[in-house]
Simulated assay, not measured.
Amino acid sequence: MAAVIVTDGRVLACERSAPPEAAGKWEFPGGKVEPGESDAVALARECAEELGVRVKVGARVGPDVPLAHGRAVLRVFEVTLLDGDEPRALEHTAMRWLAADELDSVPWLPADRPIVAELPALLAADRPA
């Protein structure tokens, strides 16, 4: 489960700190769905834990992406920050807001790359007038 947070034509990307094989790679914030949770509840919980923000979960972004170990899929949703909350890197090494022309400036985790390909149109639709 992952969140695409878009503000002013930019998407939030987060740099992994662990495990060692993923450290230094970039991803969309999120995590696992716990037993009894819906996708939306899990994503809201993960955004609170990782970024210290409250969010409203919106539409799906891209297809399900099979994860390398083959036992799960990455499912991504567009989310909106609530009440002026500002994300903080609570579990990541760093965060960056990336415009469409900056999407290739970070080394994405393999599972996130198919979602990155979906973003230019979404980012263009969110640009301020």
Rank of each mutant, 00 (worst) to 15 (best):
Ser17Met: 04
Thr80Cys: 09
Ala2Gln: 02
Arg60Pro: 00
Leu74Lys: 09
Asp85Trp: 06
Leu122Glu: 13
Glu15Arg: 11
Gly31Asp: 01
Val76Met: 12
Ala18Pro: 00
Arg113Thr: 13
Ala42Ile: 09
Ala59Tyr: 09
Val79Trp: 04
Arg16Pro: 00
Pro128Asn: 11
Asp64Phe: 05
Arg54His: 11
Ala23Met: 06
Glu21Pro: 00
Pro110Phe: 12
Leu74Tyr: 09
Asp101Ile: 07
Arg45Ile: 05
Ala18Asn: 04
Pro66Cys: 12
Ala3Trp: 02
Thr93Glu: 14
Val79Cys: 10
Pro66Gly: 13
Phe77Trp: 14
Val33Gly: 09
Gly9Tyr: 03
Lys56Glu: 13
Pro114Lys: 10
Glu15Trp: 01
Lys32Trp: 06
Gly84Tyr: 11
Arg54Thr: 11
Pro128Met: 10
Glu21Gly: 07
Thr80Leu: 10
Asp39Lys: 14
Thr93Val: 13
Glu91Gln: 06
Val33Asn: 02
Lys32Cys: 03
Val79Ile: 08
Ala40Gly: 08
Ile5Asp: 01
Ile5Ala: 07
Gly62His: 04
Ala94Trp: 01
Cys14Tyr: 01
Asp8Met: 00
Ala94Ser: 06
Val6Met: 03
Pro107Ile: 12
Met1Gly: 05
Trp108Gln: 05
Ala18Met: 01
Ala99His: 09
Pro120Phe: 12
Ala68Arg: 08
Leu81Ala: 13
Leu12Ile: 09
Ala40Trp: 01
Ala18Trp: 07
Thr7Val: 07
Val57Ile: 10
Ala18Thr: 15
Thr80Glu: 15
Arg16Lys: 09
Ala121Ile: 12
Leu122Tyr: 05
Asp83His: 13
Ala3Leu: 02
Ala40Asn: 10
Leu12Asp: 05
Ala72Gln: 12
Val11Gln: 06
Leu43Ser: 08
Ala72Trp: 09
Ala13His: 04
Leu43Cys: 04
Leu122Thr: 14
Ala22Tyr: 06
Glu37Asn: 02
Arg45Asp: 08
Ala125Pro: 00
Pro19Ala: 15
Thr93Met: 01
Leu122Ile: 15
Thr80Gln: 15
Ala89His: 02
Gly36Cys: 10
Ala99Ile: 11
Val116Ala: 06
Glu78Asp: 08
Glu102Pro: 01
Gly36Lys: 06
Val6Leu: 08
Lys56Gln: 14
Asp85Ala: 12
Asp85Gly: 06
Val73Thr: 14
Gly84Ala: 02
Phe77Tyr: 13
Ile5Arg: 02
Asp85His: 08
Pro29Val: 07
Gly24Tyr: 02
Val61Gln: 05
Val41Asp: 14
Ala125Glu: 10
Gly36Ala: 10
Thr7Asp: 02
Asp39Glu: 15
Leu81Met: 12
Trp108Ile: 08
Val53Ser: 11
Gly70Glu: 13
Met1Trp: 00
Ala124Thr: 11
Arg54Asn: 14
